[in-house]
Design a protein around this nucleic acid. Structure first.
Lengths: 219, 219, 219, 219
DNA sequence: TATGAATGAGAGTTCATTCAT
DNA sequence: TATGAATGAACTCTCATTCAT
């Protein structure tokens, strides 16, 4: 009798609520299995509102992708300004990433676990989001590593293609480690980031220092 | 007189044809967007046959996953027996992986690009497939690296948790690099594998040699 | 200071505005395709107002029909008093009709192009409107033609059934010629009326003079 | 228990049944008010069949329009070949028309009582159907009347614009008389046609003979 | 073995309509 | 008086699935 959850909210608030609810449902069920009805129910709202405000199921999904993408990009960008040395920046970036994934599991699922099976509009938006993230990471890597060698040795800077390569590898690895984290719940985001630094940074230092690996047969 | 494309084929052959067709369709369209009708059409067979042989759309998809998973696992396992040294085995494994992805694009898509949005049965099967692959890679890593140090120094062997960590990182990175490859078409599977070795192996050697990275603040 | 287009108008004015707007929309889109939202927008008013004043979409439509019907009936009635001879009255009636259709296109569309596809209440109202028009035309025809023969020969007067027949034929023809006019834009209302007189009146004169047509086979 | 109305009918038969049922429903309810569900029910068939065979509600409606339009056009065309003289042909045409409307009430409603309120595709098809009918009638009129005068007096032939005018008037009048017939059920199609001939033909004869009507004021 | 014919169940979407302010 | 916020109810359409032959 007493606690009707407040009606007549202003539009902006309701939109936010809808995206919140949608994120949960999309993340749990996937795009197709997600029923608009369930989103409504969880948002405590009726279907016409969703369509009035967002326009279509696709648009709701896109709104989710966009918001989470922006959040993650912002997070990464801020981390990149945190440390003084490139090493510190990469470290901060990795840590920020794993923290984001831990805290916004739903967002990450929506961003990275929805490849196929989705209309062009949605696929395009996801692609855009991923590129944005990749760009951020690639920049982190390139700018960071350009300073690895002694000052004045810009030759050691990673080229564009190399930086992209490392970017892809890092994002992919980090994404996959997301699963690893779920199976080792005691491992914190920081812990995971630390392991990655050990796996990646030490080698990179060497490589930039000139060390090269060649296949056994060709040595 | 007529040239109807062979009727009355034995069951095994028909099933294989169905899976072939289904793999293409699932890979191109995704699980939901894939219409059973299209699979039938491409397999040159009628719908009731598909249901008679495989039982349901889910079952068809599972059959695809299972077959491709086995193929990849076999490929990886064979690669692991190829070289003498652990280094050679990891190299062979990576190369085999990228070659598989290049040659069996559809299979890989079905295995790795279908996380959410799918019934429990399917999700379970995909999960099983991924674990199988991960197991293979983890083994590759652990067995390989256990010998990195001098003989007789098993202390440097990677622990279970560490090996799993590296396994996840490798698979994730490799998966993501799949996209990178598509954007750099001239880069062969071997080329990509080579880059990964440079990124991963050199560092790992150091780490196993005892080198440890610690965050800037705590040094 | 602000120039919001007049608020707090008296009810009668508002209703008139609503009907004006509704007429446009109904005429352009048809009853179903007409969105109440668009009517509101075009009337510069909010939805609850429309419902407060008119009650329902049906009621709005009925109000349109009623108003336009009255206008047309009035127009026809006035025309029927214009001329001295029956011939002149019919001529005036036809001219008035085509002028009305030309000048109140929307009204005519609402009156005559909405037969099916509409609830009973609306259908009833449309029917009533049409009967009113038909009555007017039938009277025009009967009273007119009753005098065609010499005075003192009431036998030539059209009977009720005949008058109704001619009334239907005239209204139908005139309605259809509405389309013809649209395809020959240079033809004025007067022009069209003239053609109809030539088509109808001359024959009618003969018929009332006793001439009868019989099918070829029965002569 | 005994009379399940035959299942597994060949496609062509089912399509015909669907159009039959649809015609009834569209005619009674109008395009929008007609629910596909009701069409299915009346056709003794399930919804997917309708969509499999015809494709959409619009397409079903269009199929109705097309079929009835063809029927009517055929009827008119045949009638036009029936008589020797133009007079006889016009008479046959009118009679055929009223008979068609009497026997295929639903078809006529679908053809002529669905002006506004309908998507472009449907509107286009209706328009096409109406033009076809109008063409037929116009031809009937023109070819007929060209011979009205004595042989060798082609000057009396109706010009294109005039013929179109008369065509519109005739179709409109006939359409409207359809309502008149419903209110005088004892009047047969032949009867109605006879009245129209009396109303139209006698006058037309005069007009083509050179008689012209001019407004009172200008004489 | 093989298939054309058929369907149950549910999805997204769009109104006209009404609270609550 | 006037309105932004909200909804119930219905509709078209699609798909995996199964008869009946």
């Amino acid at each position: 009798m007493t606690e009707k959850p407040r009606r007549r909210l202003p539009r902006a608030v309701r939109e936010e609520q809808i995206v919140d609810a949608a994120l949960e449902v999309f993340s749990q069920r996937g795009y197709h299995a997600a029923a608009v009805d369930e989103i409504c129910e969880r948002a405590g709202i009726s279907k016409p509102m969703v369509y009035l405000y967002l326009g279509s199921k696709e648009a709701v999904f896109i709104a989710c992708v966009r918001r989470e993408s922006e959040r993650l990009v912002t997070t990464l960008r801020e981390a990149a300004h945190t440390g003084d040395t490139p090493e510190a920046r990469l470290w901060a970036g990795l840590e920020a990433f794993f923290r984001f994934v831990t805290d916004h599991r739903d967002g990450w699922v929506v961003l990275h676990r929805h490849a196929a099976d989705v209309g062009e509009a949605v696929a395009g938006e996801i692609d855009r989001a991923r590129r944005a993230i990749m760009t951020e990471v690639t920049r982190l890597v390139r700018d960071g590593i350009s300073l690895v060698g002694e000052p004045g040795t810009p030759a050691t800077r990673l080229g564009g293609e190399d930086a992209e390569f490392v970017g892809h590898a890092l994002v992919g690895a980090a994404d996959s480690l997301t699963d690893w984290m779920e199976r080792h719940p005691r491992r914190s985001a920081e812990d995971t980031a630390l392991r990655m630094m050990n796996m990646v940074w030490i080698g990179m230092r060497q490589v930039l220092g000139g060390e090269v690996w060649t296949p056994p047969g060709r040595r």
